[in-house]
Amino acid sequence: MNWEYESPRKAYGETLIELGKEREDIVVMDADLSTSTKTAMFGKEFPDRFFNVGLQEQNMMGIAAGLARSGKIVFASSFAVFATGRAYDQVRQSIAYPKLNVKIVATHGGVTVGEDGASHQMIEDLGLMSGLPNMRVIAPLDSNEVRRVIRFVAKEDGPFYVRLTRTALPNLTSGEDEFEFGKGRVMRDGSDATIIALGIEVSYSLLAAEILKKEGYDIRVINMSTIKPIDKDIIVKAAKDTGAIMTVEDHNIYNGLGSRVAEVLVENYPIRMHRHGMKDRFGRSGKWNVLLEHYGMDDKGIAKEMLGFLKEVKK
């Protein structure tokens, strides 16, 4: 497909600068990864409102809480593995419990981190953050959506977790689209089965749907940027319309998108579903696209997984 690729991290950095110009009360924090997370772009523009605390993710989250308690809108960034794993207790106790106005925007979610390997590939973050009361969780599917999501979380009071990926993403939505918090979106209609995907896997799922079309299957593809609260209606409708649902995520199949969708289906409209993604194993080093192929999470892999699933449910 003729997609235009753009770095979601850069879109984040650019949006922070725009917000910084519009609002005096926005402050940004980082823990020695600002050139990677792109918060450094904000820091260069607004040095007095940028706090890079060094390698102190736990301290960063606590300070973010104190700043928010004093009226600031705080964006705190690091890699997903450190922002949610290393500092989990600080996020829980000092941000989620008191419902403070801190936006945790983590980059480098999932195995698509690539060569750095399993230590840096966070595949549990959606579960960790979704499990926290008061925390809302969003994983934008492209850079245009990153801009909208960052603007949205800046104006909404209270804590958010926003998960970005390291790699450039194809812009599947236009700059003019609106972000609808808590709403999934049909990216491609179909009637034989549904793929619900998030983040980088949405574009691969759309490509997989093209492959499956040649196999005679008409696949619906839904983007589920908001993990929490999740869009029940679009899931139940897809279940009723297509009778089979597969989830695809660059995350462990436990506690992420697949688990959330399963909960909705079991409680509302039980049908067969299948979870695809990292199947409860740590990643490994490699180029990001080679890793997706390795784990069957590229277009061909997703199509193959869906064919196997369809053979089971449609027999």
């Binding site: 301290n59 300070i63 104190g66 700043l67 308690r69 004093s70 207790d89 600080q90 106790q93």
Partner: peptide, 12 residues
């Protein structure tokens, strides 16, 4: 965690 929160308040 309290000293971190205190730093945030002092910075603000």
């Amino acid at each position: 965690q309290g000293l971190s929160a205190g730093i945030g308040m002092a910075l603000a």
